[in-house]
Simulated scan of single mutants.
Amino acid sequence: MLKVYRAGALGGIAIGADSAPEMLEGAVWIDVADPLAWEGPLLREATGIELPSRADMVEIEASSRIFREGDASFMTVLLVVGIDSDNPTSVPVSFILTPERLVTVRYSDPQPFRSFAGFCEKSGVPGTPFEILTRLLDNIVDRTADILERMATEIDSLNGTVFALRTPSGRRLSTDDLTIILRRIGQVNFVLNKVHDSLQTLMRMSSFLAVPSREPELRQEKQIREELKSVARDIASLDQNASYLSANVGFLLDAALGRISIEQNAIIKIFSVGAVVFLPPTLVASIYGMNFTYMPELEWKLGYAWAIGLMVLAAVVPYLWFKRKGWL
């Protein structure tokens, strides 16, 4: 879908397949979501901008993601989407900045774009493409900060679960509980890796825009230049926070694996105690279960009680001895 935003207008106008190139004239922001086959030629005829393909947008080389052609700056970043679903991922978004307009190309619907479109519908579209770019970056940074805050909350929850002696219901952590903990840790680590990749692309983009000779118009707009510097500082701060959270996730993973070892040792300990308690009585019972003709105890009236008492004593004495030594 191709949407055109003009300075001062409330919201954007969707462009159809039968629209003339003149419909794009005067647009300060052109948002292209899930480009159709006819939208690329229409945009090229109206603005001279060639839309990048999806394959171009996922190139990992920095020179393929950020470059300049004529008076147009092409910048591709990764944004984290689907954080509220079971399958969060990162998607590429391209920003094409010219002195006349900003063109965004995306194959998803990131929350920062929805928020900014809603802002334009209520307060009007900003007057220059640089203001629009700055506001979009602000929204992206805010959304990334929200994701990191959510991951920090999840890490705190995991920390309490991993180091808790028992579950809220009062029972020990089971194999299913520990499996769920490992899955949650893996999910948090997966999201943090995606956020880190996103912040790296945003840092390259902000560095690209910060070059004084990059955009002559930015030298004339002191306020926008200061806002871009503020965004760059926020991105660097978020990257440090993401690294800190990743270190905490690594610690939690080690702690969870240690907890699993403790639980496994506890199970083995139970079997060991059972062996200690029942092995000596079994020995006594085996002796008196022998089918020899001459056994003195067979003629005793208290022979049965003697055997039972001996088995109990054989079980209790080793248990008390091990308990006193602290082995149990």
Results as ranks from 00 to 15, higher is better:
residue 321 W to L: 15
residue 52 P to I: 07
residue 213 S to F: 02
residue 19 S to I: 00
residue 255 A to S: 15
residue 199 L to C: 04
residue 34 D to I: 03
residue 113 F to L: 10
residue 145 A to E: 12
residue 60 I to D: 12
residue 143 R to F: 15
residue 92 P to Y: 07
residue 297 E to W: 12
residue 97 L to G: 02
residue 252 L to D: 09
residue 164 A to T: 01
residue 89 T to M: 11
residue 103 V to D: 06
residue 216 P to E: 11
residue 195 V to A: 03
residue 214 R to V: 08
residue 46 A to D: 11
residue 93 V to I: 06
residue 201 T to Y: 07
residue 210 A to I: 11
residue 111 Q to F: 13
residue 164 A to C: 04
residue 145 A to V: 01
residue 44 R to L: 09
residue 314 A to W: 08
residue 136 L to M: 14
residue 259 R to Y: 08
residue 44 R to M: 12
residue 266 A to M: 06
residue 104 T to G: 04
residue 38 W to E: 13
residue 81 V to M: 04
residue 6 R to F: 03
residue 61 E to K: 07
residue 76 T to P: 08
residue 148 L to S: 04
residue 311 M to H: 06
residue 239 D to T: 13
residue 128 T to P: 11
residue 60 I to Q: 09
residue 138 D to K: 01
residue 162 V to E: 05
residue 229 K to E: 14
residue 146 D to T: 08
residue 135 R to W: 05
residue 213 S to W: 00
residue 210 A to T: 13
residue 168 P to S: 03
residue 242 A to H: 03
residue 285 A to H: 00
residue 151 M to K: 02
residue 322 F to H: 07
residue 30 I to Q: 09
residue 225 R to P: 01
residue 99 P to D: 05
residue 154 E to N: 07
residue 26 G to A: 06
residue 93 V to R: 02
residue 110 P to G: 10
residue 259 R to E: 05
residue 285 A to C: 10
residue 79 L to Y: 04
residue 68 R to N: 08
residue 82 G to S: 09
residue 171 R to L: 06
residue 206 S to A: 14
residue 72 A to N: 08
residue 318 P to K: 08
residue 26 G to M: 06
residue 315 A to T: 12
residue 139 N to L: 08
residue 216 P to Q: 06
residue 292 F to K: 08
residue 67 F to Y: 15
residue 20 A to P: 01
residue 227 E to Y: 11
residue 105 V to A: 01
residue 226 E to P: 03
residue 19 S to W: 02
residue 83 I to N: 02
residue 250 G to F: 01
residue 105 V to W: 07
residue 124 G to W: 07
residue 129 P to Y: 04
residue 53 S to L: 01
residue 189 N to L: 00
residue 213 S to D: 14
residue 315 A to C: 12
residue 286 S to M: 05
residue 61 E to T: 04
residue 146 D to I: 05
residue 293 T to C: 01
residue 247 A to V: 12
residue 144 T to Y: 00
residue 22 E to T: 14
residue 138 D to Y: 09
residue 293 T to A: 13
residue 200 Q to F: 09
residue 71 D to G: 11
residue 242 A to N: 04
residue 126 P to I: 10
residue 110 P to M: 13
residue 66 I to F: 13
residue 199 L to V: 05
residue 261 S to H: 09
residue 252 L to V: 06
residue 302 L to H: 13
residue 150 R to V: 00
residue 127 G to I: 02
residue 127 G to Q: 12
residue 279 L to M: 14
residue 140 I to M: 15
residue 212 P to F: 05
residue 44 R to W: 04
residue 280 P to D: 02
residue 225 R to M: 10
residue 264 Q to C: 05
